[in-house]
Amino acid sequence: MNGLRGHRLNVAVGIILLFMPFWMGAIGGYTELASRILVMGLAAMSLNFLLGFTGVLSFGHAAYFGLGAYGAAMAIKYLGAGTMPAIALGMLVATLAAMVIGALIVRRRGVYFAMVTIAFGQVFYFLAFRWNSVTGGDDGLTGWHRAPIDFGVATLDIFGSDKAFYYFALVIFGVCVAAMALLLSSPFGRTLIAIRENERRARFLGVPIEFHIWLSFVVSCLFVSVAGALYALLNNFTDPRALRFDLSGNLVIMAVLGGMRSFWGPLIGAAIFVALQDFVSSRTENWMSVIGLVFVLVVRFFPRGVLGMLRNAAKA
């Protein structure tokens, strides 16, 4: 349905991502920036599963991003876990938290839902902030790093090579994005889009709205936690800011900026956001004002986001 059409766009995105570490260098970027775009893109697309395709706004997704990050980081630091088990543990912790918190909040709607998501999200922030001995507190969790992945026949040195990490992240990104695309084009996905379109009609077709929103929330948090785990691996570090509500807000900005009605929109929003952040913050302290300005202009003149604008231009 909406936003999933256009195989050409899928192929184009695939090719761009496949070569990003190479063309990044040509335009003054670097591989780590490419990885950051990928990871934040996955986070924004995951948020958009809930926001753009179920019509439910969460301002607390940083909590699950951060739980994924801390889960993976702590698994490596304290348990000596390998890369994949670390990611899995981050996902598990975040998803369990999302299941419990989701159940507590699904009855709220609109701005009330958004507000309770912030409130619950901040709980984890303060926990990470205060619990010094385990989380490293405000200084973050250091003293660990991602390890090369041993496939038996060969090793992928994601630690030593930035490019190797990028392609490792790209594979995980691809799996997650494909899973979300499949879900959205399934009967289950259609019930979510139906809820977005008209909650009353969906209910009177027999959809238990709260349960489906809960499921969508959990799926969305599950994928955002993968992004969080990758983010910790990318930086070999995580700190409480990975859990804080301003990150939640940034994810919403990325989704809206790129176009929350389109499947790839949030990835484009994330790319613009992360690139601007990188470029502007090296020149001025006030990078958030620049992003804010871009955001306001896009929302004002292209309510369907940057991708929506490009689509309209292509049609004309």
């Binding site: 499949l182 879900l183 399934s186 009967p187 289950f188 996905g189 259609r190 019930t191 077709l205 027999g206 959809v207 489906h212 499921l215």
Partner: peptide
């Protein structure tokens, strides 16, 4: 799809 009992089906 709902009538057919597919509302939770992730892949048809």
């Amino acid at each position: 799809e709902i009538a057919a009992g597919y509302r939770l089906t992730p892949w048809l």
